[in-house]
Amino acid sequence: MAEFPIACNLQGDYGYKVIVIDDADTVADIIRKTTDQLIGVLVAPFPPDTVLKAKIHGAETPLADTATVKDAAIIQMAAIDIYAES
């Protein structure tokens, strides 16, 4: 296991934040680590039952929640957008 930084922009925030993750983390872990640090700080809580998804910035489709960092080919300092599924 190795820690490394990625850049995440949570829906509603004004810009990217550098989040330190572990290469064994799943995409769901990335979403949780980001929301834990930003909801209630710069972003208001999402309505109950909101489903958050993550995608590589510029990609069309979201990453599978269960995919690991390695599975999803997320590299150091990759830009990840986290957003509410509509």
Binding site: G15, Y16, V20, L38, V41, L42
Partner: peptide, 22 residues
């Protein structure tokens, strides 16, 4: 809680925050 724990991403040209619309 008015201070975020994670640092911002910084532009590798202008050195300011990489930002969009909030």
């Amino acid at each position: 809680k008015t201070v975020p724990v994670p640092p911002p991403l910084i532009c590798n040209m202008c050195g300011l925050e990489v930002s969009g619309i909030a």
